[in-house]
Design a binder for these strands. Structure first.
Lengths: 218, 218
DNA sequence: TGGCTCCTTTTGGTTAGTCAAAAGTTTACT
DNA sequence: AGTAAACTTTTGACTAACCAAAAGGAGCCA
């Protein structure tokens, strides 16, 4: 049996590098998992023994094919649960993450399949992140940072990279919801700002903030 | 934080004696939890130190007020989850128990509240067992064993005590579903049988089987 | 009262996961 | 090249939960 601790290590490795190309530093992994570096090292060693990661001491760690596969399924469970909590149980975008964090380790594949069906086989979760398929494929979209858009572009909001509650509230208050279609009115590199129109309302954003919002061409 | 192991010990103590009146034997508790008696003893000792149970060495163990309270809430979570899996996700009566066994330890009160709402504040789960309220009250019904009913009685099926899959299938096939109203046609103590009519169909049951079915006067 | 059986408790050992602090590497700068 | 800073690994120790097997009551029957 695979413990939830192991699932968390694998999941975070995946989230830090979805393609599993880079060597992730022990300390970085330790930080996101809120454990000491020493704890991470020893867990990495046992993961390596099980063939779930490849460990080059002092250089870093990387998921193996097998490890990545497990991780992807944890992420699938997490995102389906999140979407389920929001769409079916009516919970808030902000409060579902921690809940899903727990549930992802105990819900069976059967339950996930049924939730998936009830949700209509969604491809992306409430944060705009892709939901891996049961086979482990990750649906790709060609996203672009809002900060790279040009005047006149018509795009739809696909993902908000900043999980900060205040930022999410600001986005929500200004109609910058997932799927909302917006038009780029002005772009001023000198003033470091971009002006967009969403649902008739004009909003001015700094380019740094715009860099946290990903959009899809429509 | 209270571990799921502790929750399981408390829950099983509650299920073995819902009123928490008797002293439960260590060995009995160990058996339902599938642990050795020694393991049970040592956990009982730590539970006693936390004030969750009262332990009289060599005589038995009993939930305290506080322990029973926690146990009742675990049971509430379990039963609401079960009902949710059956009614909302369309799972089978038989397959939800193990799933709920896992989920009961991780779902938050918020999620339970929302499920409860979605289900219409049910008072009993798919097995006919009562669902404790958020305050810990246990809705009582005055149930009677089908084997004690007399000719002419009109009753509704409230609970099936036998969890055996074959028995459940037999019951289902003969229209003996939760809530179904039936009439007692004949009762023959010599032949040890009882004849009932449900939805026009007559079914003959041995009194032993009838003793596993509980009914409510209508 | 002794002895027998059944059950409970104790004892000693294991595993997974953690931390704190010591020891060892790498890198980067002079 | 030499050294300090930054990071990683090792070491030793802890906790929760478990098991197997030895030791310790309790009740019963002669």
């Amino acid at each position: 049996m695979i413990s939830s601790t192991v699932e968390n290590y694998l999941k975070e490795l995946f989230l830090l590098d979805p393609r599993s190309e880079k060597q992730i530093a022990t300390g970085e992994l330790a930080k996101v998992l809120c454990v000491t570096p020493g704890s991470a090292t020893s867990m990495i060693k046992t993961l390596a023994q099980s063939g779930l990661v490849e460990h080059r001491p002092h250089y870093g760690v990387k998921l193996t094919e097998q490890g990545r596969n497990l991780a992807v399924h944890v992420v699938r469970r997490h995102r389906i649960v999140e979407l389920f909590l929001v769409n079916i149980l009516g919970m808030d975008w902000g409060e579902v993450h921690d809940e899903a964090e727990q549930l992802e380790h105990v819900v069976s594949d059967d339950v996930i399949t049924r939730m998936d069906e009830l949700l209509g086989h969604p491809t992306h979760d409430p944060h705009g992140d892709p939901i891996p398929t049961p086979e482990g494929e990750i649906p790709e979209r060609s996203l672009q940072l809002l900060s790279f858009c040009n005047e006149g572009d018509n795009v739809a909001i696909a993902r908000i990279g900043n999980q900060d509650a205040a930022f999410l509230k600001f986005a929500e208050d200004n109609g910058l919801l997932l799927g909302a279609s917006i038009e780029i009115k002005h772009r001023n590199d000198i003033a470091d700002s971009i002006t967009i129109q969403s649902q008739g309302k004009e909003v001015v954003l700094g380019l740094a903030a715009a860099g946290r919002i990903e959009v899809e061409d429509v």
